[in-house]
Amino acid sequence: MIESLRYIAIGIGATLTITSSAFVIGAILGLPLAALRRSQFMVLRAMARVYVELVRSVPPLVWLFLVFFGLPQAGVSLVPLAAAILTFSLIAAAYMSEIYRGGLAALGRGQWEASSAVGLSPLDTARFILGPQVFRVVGPTMATYGIGLLKDSALASTIGVVEITFRAGAEAQRTGSGLTVFLTAGIFYLLLSLPLALASRRVDSRLRARYSIA
């Protein structure tokens, strides 16, 4: 039992690497993508829209296989971990852009108008006025998405990334005790996601109390 625990725990590193990298890269790439959705040029708006819809309508597992098995045909071969990070980052960017978009919509026109009326540049408006407010609004949603990402990262086991689920599968085969092994894996995921959920709830209620943002 303890031995299985230790064996599976080794996968935590890869699980966290995929989740946190994809979360951070997706959160960054989602910004320009959300901005494109509001561009005054129709072509840019359409391109961003197509990207988001495409990513969301195809299962993540298919994207993962496309990147890992498909890209080598185009001359780009990635090790499993890199392929998983790339795939989940590109998927996360699409979802994050949608989260930002919702947050921006929730702010309403008044903040834009006040910013332009006082003469703030679009960049300053994003940086000082919209950005800080959007992040406060979307923080909890982003955390929820992060938890989803953590669970989706289990898919990386299918291309041979040695993360929690991969280690659990191997251990189950070795010992034949699938129940305890996968229960253990489940508890690992639970323990990893709990702090994120708690932290987001705490930050959320603190910010709401301070700024009275609905």
Binding site: A114, G119, L120, I129, Q133, R136
Partner: peptide, 29 residues
């Protein structure tokens, strides 16, 4: 726009900034 200050019906203050920052930030930027 630099020639005209605007006051809105719905105030449109920046809710995440203190009163002082609301007034100071545009001057700085």
């Amino acid at each position: 726009r630099r020639g005209a200050g605007m006051v809105f019906q719905s105030f449109n203050l920046f809710p995440h900034l203190t009163v002082l920052r609301n007034v100071s930030l545009p001057q700085e930027r």
